[in-house]
Write a protein that binds this DNA or RNA. Sequence first.
DNA 1: AATCCTCACAACCGCCGGTCA
DNA 2: ATGACCGGCGGTTGTGAGGAT
Length: 256
Amino acid sequence: MGRTPCCDKDNVKRGPWSPEEDAALKSYLESHGTGGNWILLPKKAGLRRCGKSCRLRWLNYLRPDIKHGSFTEEEDSIIFSLYNQMGSRWSVIASHMPGRTDNDVKNYWNTKLKKKLLVLGGKVKNISSEEREPTITNNANFSGIPKTEEPQDPAFSTFQPATLQTLSDVNSGLNAYNQTLRLNPDQLYSPKPLGFSNFGASSRRNFSTTVSLSQEGSSVSDSSSIAGNGYLDQDSWFCMDYGYDKIKTKLKKQLL
DNA sequence: AATCCTCACAACCGCCGGTCA
DNA sequence: ATGACCGGCGGTTGTGAGGAT
């Protein structure tokens, strides 16, 4: 069961790329292009690598227009500014900086700028729904999960993550939301089914962002800096424990 | 000189969205 | 409508270099 792997992991080389591999990949791409399929590319190029690995190597390192070297003050400002506006949408931020990749920007943020921000006493502001891009839903107004009313469907009121309190305890600095979750399946299947953390989460990756917060909980003391309304999205915690696919499967079954 | 620690960044992992059969 | 496949993305981990002890 589970997702089909993108390649045969037992028969592909992993780890750092050798100069020979780089040369082979570069040479192949320069003469043939990707052919519209990264998965088949390594075979054609004579490489024992996963297609995704080839793609990443090319995009993040071998591409001729990549800018290597340290970031400038101006680039720092751009990153701060864009992060403040949209959070950790590294690919979008990188698109504003010619020659920089999302991986570059992400690494730079994680290793340098985040610390710089702390040293400066700065704080990435919370992003209100009005300020956000339209694709990001408004956490503060998240209506899919009523906090106090009785659940619309009793079947969903008992579906509570067993480990929620544990997570809350582990991250004592975080005010994890730990009341019973009551899920409304109609809301969960709306076009934007699940809510989004206000801590700069992208519209696609909110669950992982929450996991990241939990791992760095000790460094977060002000819960209001995580979410505008003072606590993490209920659904984010929920999905962190149970996984998106499990929820989809369970809800589908119950809806049938 | 050896060991430990920290840091930067390359690479991997797993997920989601889009596309197509 | 459904499922498989692929590309793209963000979070996390692994690794090597360099500094500190």
